[in-house]
Amino acid sequence: MALTVIAIIRLRNLYAVVMLASIFSLMAAAIFVILDAVDVAFTEAAVGAGISTVLGLGTIALTTSEEKKPTRLKLFPLLVVLITGGALIYGTLDLAKYGDPNAPAHKHVAPTYLKEAPEKTGIPNVVTSVLASYRGYDTLGEVTVIFTAGVGVILLLGNWRFIGRRREDNDV
């Protein structure tokens, strides 16, 4: 995965970059399966490897497939990134160990969900019941965001000929 990301940084051909991003998504999906998140893996595989690749290729077809500037290492951004990364790694030292069953994240509401959800909703997949029932407001908000994004894309790229003459593209 790390190699793919480095390749994404270095490559200038945007076609290759989008393809590598797709491979990156697929690997992320595999990791999610290993980490027991089957629902998430499902979504990531369908979205990342499928739809976002198609959209990326569509954008490249409409714009350009080569990055103009040679990708040389820039020092100042690299410095900023290294400092931020160092601070984050320092922050991880206090976090719970990987897979620790006593981590605070597993002590709060998760046991309640795991115990109650199948009885109260009659649905064995806890992810589904939490998604739709316990966190219904959350999900409603997310669906509204998707709705808004869809409307935004239509507004930006749809042809609104019937509103009137399209604005002339100013040739700069």
Binding site: I51, L55, T59, L62, T139, I146, F147, G150, V153
Partner: peptide, 21 residues
């Protein structure tokens, strides 16, 4: 409801991109 919206938005976004070209 979630499925209908997600499917429609994704197909619509693709069609819009493609029709634009």
């Amino acid at each position: 409801g979630v499925g209908v919206t997600v499917a429609s938005v994704m197909i619509m976004v693709f069609f819009t991109f493609a029709r634009h070209r």
